[in-house]
Structures are given as structure tokens and as C-alpha cells.
Amino acid sequence: MRVGPVGYRLGSDWRAPIAAIEALYRDYPKPDFADYTVRLEAEHVWRRWIRPSVRIGGDYRLPEAAPLPLGQGLLAAELGMNLQMALGHRRHLLLHAAVVERDGRAVIMSGISGAGKSTLALLLAQQGWRFLSDEFALIEPDTGLVVPFPRPVSLKNESLSVIPAGSRVGPLLAGTPKGDIRHVAPSVEALAAMDRPAKPVLILFPRFGFPAATRVLPPAESFVRLTQASTNYVALGEAGFRAMVRLRSTVPAIAFDYPDGPSGVAAVEALWAAL
């Protein structure tokens, strides 16, 4: 399937993970060429049938990655697709971030796992924002634009309740290494616009579960935070440095804490409106 500028090819020793992916990615384009190959393989020949366990393989892989039970095959496929980006992708500067856009102006929300990026992106998408990305912000080195990469949103544990009715969802994956997970496909409109980049106007570092507060980050701190959030900044060398300097010097960065979803959405909208 194709997600924004990236084509994937997925192979599996079992039928079930492919069926789950096909259902979740039903509305994505099917390209003739894949940039990256992901393979879900049995750890040993016999583990295809006996206590089946999925090893994540592909063009790029982590040798020490722990295998997952077959029931979490969809998660293995999603992790495999993330790995290809994190380890192999060099066409864009990658930031671990969710991205939403309104009126052609994009907000990049970066932060560690559990900071609430995915939940905020999904809530904002219900308020008329266009969803560009959940896992990675792709910055085009030549233009500084953010390119949509609308993979399904992965929601965990207490965030599962924010899934809007009528969404295309994957199965509930209980008891994964990150707790209970469910994937939510982006809206058909977000997918239809996946080839339309946007200009980043605001970088946010949200933090869930703290009293509401905002703090404008000085350039040095935002630079360090962004390099920490990037999976390929070092590998890109000078091109990565230039893209990062440009992003940091043209786009304001703000850290903000929020106690719950609705106040988080209100804070993002207020910060965006104040630009």
C-alpha cells in the first residue's frame, strides 16, 4: 500500500496479519512499486504452527527485537513499517510527531510515547482539522514543507475511549508490550489529500496529565528537543542539519501541559489562533 510518499510491500508466513492489514488499509492506494519491504516471519519453521510467533523482518530490522504472538500480527506489521522509516528512510527529515493542518498551516506535535500526541491528533481531526500523520512528521529538505504520512492512529489503554463512532478500526490488541492497542484508520478525506503537503507554522511539545501551562521554548532548547525527536537527523548529515536549522528558525516552538483531552484541543486551537 502507499502512505503519502512511501510505498510498502508486506509479506507474511501467515494469512491472518495480511487480512488484518488489508481491512485496516482498505482505502489506501495500491502502488506498483514499494520503497520498503516488510516481512512477518516464523521464528523457526515449526513456530509457524506451534505457538506461532512473529519475527519482524524486512529491508531494515533490529536484530534484538522481541517476537510477538501471532494474535498481535497487525501490531508486528505496523512496527515493521515504522522500522523501515526509522532505520532506512533518508528522503525526508523524520520527527517522532503527530501532524494536523488547517487552512494549509500545519501543527507538529512532538513528544515521547504517552504524551498524548495520537489522542490530540484524533480529537483535532474531529474538530475539522486535517490529519497528516500520527507517528512521523516528514519534513522535505528542499522546501521545509511537511509531507502527509497518514498511517492509522495507534491508540493505547485509556485513550481507546476517544475513537469516534463509525471509524474504520483494527481489532483490539490486548496485552501487548505497550498495553491494549487499537488502530484507527484516518478519514477518507485525509487519505484523499495525502499528496498535499503543508507549511509548518507551529511546533508543540504536549504533555498529558499535568495542570494547564504553556512555555515558549528558547531556540537552543527547541533545537535539542527536535534532534532528540528525530530518528534520522544524524544519518542525513548536512542535509539534516540544514532542514533542522530552517525548521527551528522559521517555526515557533511551545511546550504545553494539559490535564485532559478537551482542554488540550482548546489549548492547541488557542495557540494556533494567536500566531
Binding site: G7, F33, D35, R90, L236, G237
Partner: peptide
Amino acid sequence: VTAEVRAVLDDARAEASEVRRT
């Protein structure tokens, strides 16, 4: 070569020049 393939090959050349520099 077709555009899709060229993009992958361009990436590979850029990566190789970075690998060389390092």
C-alpha cells in the same frame, strides 16, 4: 529509470556519500 525507482536510487546515492564522509 522510472520516477519511483529513481527516487530510491537517489536516496541510496545520498546515503552513500554520507557514509563515505563519516
